[in-house]
Every structure is written in C-alpha cells, then in structure tokens.
C-alpha cells in the first residue's frame, strides 16, 4: 500500500474540477487535484521513490514497488517552457515523500492566464485501487491525499 501525500498545500478540488478533460475524465489515471495556495512555494514529492521524469511543470516519481505518481503543476503549463519554475532535484534522484522537487509561484501562473491547479495522479492504477481519496477541504503540503492499495 502506498500513501500519497499532497505535493502542495491548498484547497482539494478533485480531478473532476480540473479544467482539462484529460485529467477531469481520469484518462491519465485516478487521483485528485489541489488548488494551490497563491504564494511562492516548493512542490514536493508525493511518495518515496525515484524521479523518473522531471519537467519544470510536471514530474513522475516511482516507488520501489513500481508504482508511479504524476504531479502536474498547473494546466497547459508546458507552454510556459519552464519559465517561473526552478528545479530543486534532478531526474534519477531518489526522494522521500515531502522532499522539494520544483520551486514555483502559483500566483504567477494564474497571472499568466493559466490555471495553477495541480492534478496528482496514480499512473496505471485500476479504477477502485485508490481509497480515502480527498476530494475537498484544505490540505497542508506533505499531508495524506489518498491511499493506493
């Protein structure tokens, strides 16, 4: 069982409220999403594992059991080409849940006309594999977000 923690603090809104159907319809996988607090901050790893993919706007961490979790920092943020993001880790690094990976400013993303909402997705997870999925309320960075059975 993997406990997935919040990569950012903010208001949990659920995947269904992400303004991108790919995430909202759980095409990428099941999970949830967080409207981050509008202040400069550091997005952290959602699980213990290895960073197998690190983009400024998104990263994937894979645990020792092979389970991968995607964190996407904002919607359509790939178009920002890294502007406003600063990498605090490198691809291939081993990280602990809660360890900083990318520094960014959600307010700046919003000012640039994009949603800074952060989908947190269990990759290749079967429907029903997640439990205790938070869909609402406030969450602090590093607090439990859902469980992957």
């Amino acid at each position: 069982m993997t406990v997935v923690v919040a990569p950012v603090g903010g208001a949990v809104v659920g995947l269904a409220n992400v303004p991108d159907p790919v995430f909202a319809q759980a095409m990428v996988g099941p999970g949830t999403a967080i409207e981050p607090d509008r202040e400069p901050g550091e997005a952290v790893s959602p699980i213990d594992g290895k960073i197998i993919k690190l983009h400024p706007h998104a990263y994937v961490v894979v645990g020792d059991d092979g389970r991968g979790v995607l964190v996407h920092l904002g919607i359509d943020t790939v178009q920002l080409k890294g502007e406003g993001f600063r990498l605090l880790a490198a691809e291939g690094d081993r990280v602990s849940a809660g360890q900083p990976v990318v520094a960014w400013d959600p307010a700046a993303i919003e000012a640039a006309g994009r949603s800074p909402v952060c989908p947190v997705v269990a990759l290749d997870a079967q429907a029903g594999a997640l439990s205790d999925v938070q869909e609402s309320g406030q969450v602090t960075r590093g607090a439990e977000l859902f469980r992957w059975e």
Partner: peptide, 10 residues
C-alpha cells in the same frame, strides 16, 4: 498500454 512507461519514454 502503460501511461507510466509512455511518459517515462519522454
């Protein structure tokens, strides 16, 4: 068939 594998392939 694996989104993880496809994303990792980059």
């Amino acid at each position: 068939k694996s989104i993880l594998a496809v994303l990792a392939l980059d």
